[in-house]
Simulated scan of single mutants.
Amino acid sequence: MRWIAPTEKDPAGAMLDGMPQAGNDRQSVFGGYLEIVCVPLLMVFHRLCYDLTGILLSGSAVDHGPLLLTRLDEWIPFVPVFVLPYILTWGYGGFIVLYALLSRTYDHRLFRYFYLAFLLMTGVECLLWLTFPAQISIRAGATELARSGWLGELTSYVYQRATPWNVIPSAHIAFAWLAWLFSAHFARAGQRWPFLAAFILVALSVLFIKNHYLADVAGGVLLGQSIYLLVFRPACRRGLLDRLPGSLVVGVSLAAATAATLGFMSLQG
């Protein structure tokens, strides 16, 4: 693996000496590119964990949503066109890997730390949602959605898919911010701006389709930053996952997705 020059800095402002950056070294077939299968597996894991917490909270008698609502949240207008970038974020993990492959900066050992960070971040999100139940109460009404045509129909679909309970922190924001920080380790010089632009677009989308409070955005940034500083960077520096067999990396992702699937099926049944 190639190591980043000690004169460069990461988004947190710390020197990146001793931190891995994507290189072009030869990778084994299974331990390398086939680890990309972790992306859809972890996305399934995240989605099902999200739905599980939504089901568990649906009967909650406690709602901290009013504590998060501010006048500024109420003033933010409903802009249905922002449902498009919101939906695109569902495939953001795949876009990140695709960029790394096309730019020839994909390194399976580096991406393992991103998978680990995402796995742990999902767990923390669920714990926070369950600990602090909060329901979104500012979604656009049926009349407003109907006036918005097909964009309103898409927004209505998002509302149906997104449980109103998993509010703070915003999973969209946490992932987009973590991806922006992670891009310092694999994006080529001068090509990190799309990841920052993606974060800004995601932040605007969750607010303008009225699916999150401003506090949720702040909470998502805080969570993504914390996972990066406390999990991703320390694990990278120590090379904790470098020598793991690819079969184990894929196996853990598969086990996580399977466990979430079984849990979801048991609640649905």
Rank of each mutant, 00 (worst) to 15 (best):
P20L: 08
M19G: 05
Q225K: 13
R139P: 04
F264T: 00
F232G: 04
M121Q: 14
Y50A: 01
G54C: 01
L57K: 09
L42I: 13
A257P: 00
T155C: 00
L196N: 09
A198T: 12
M19H: 02
V79C: 12
G149S: 04
S247R: 10
T105V: 13
A256K: 11
T105E: 12
A142C: 05
G65H: 05
R47E: 10
P11Y: 14
E144P: 11
G152T: 03
R161E: 11
E153D: 15
F182N: 05
G93I: 04
S103E: 12
S148H: 08
L204P: 02
L98I: 06
A162I: 12
K210A: 06
L57V: 02
R26D: 07
E35R: 08
S247G: 03
M121S: 05
G246M: 09
P85E: 00
Y99S: 00
R161Y: 11
R139C: 09
P66H: 13
R237T: 04
D63Y: 12
A134F: 04
A215S: 06
F264M: 12
F199R: 03
H46F: 14
L196I: 04
G219E: 03
F30Y: 10
A203R: 01
L204Y: 02
W129R: 07
Y99A: 00
L254T: 08
V29L: 14
A189H: 08
A259R: 14
L229H: 08
V37F: 10
F114H: 07
E35D: 02
R109V: 07
V202T: 15
R238T: 03
M1L: 14
A187E: 05
I200P: 11
G219F: 03
G263L: 03
R47P: 11
I4Q: 13
F118S: 15
L57N: 07
A260E: 08
L42G: 08
L229S: 11
P77W: 00
F111N: 03
V62A: 07
L130F: 09
D107K: 01
F111S: 00
S205W: 02
L16S: 14
C49G: 14
V167C: 11
A171V: 09
I200D: 00
V37Y: 04
A197W: 04
W193I: 11
S148W: 01
T131G: 15
R188I: 02
A134M: 06
F78S: 04
A22K: 03
M43Q: 09
F30I: 15
F95S: 02
D25F: 09
R109D: 03
W165T: 08
G93N: 03
I36Q: 06
A215M: 04
R161S: 12
L240P: 03
R104F: 01
A61Q: 13
I227F: 06
C126Q: 14
P85Y: 05
N211A: 09
V217E: 05
M121L: 10
G91K: 13
S170W: 02
S148A: 14
I138V: 06
F95C: 09
C49R: 02
R238A: 13
K9R: 15
L130I: 01
F132E: 08
G141D: 12
S205H: 00
E144L: 11
A146Y: 13
S253H: 07
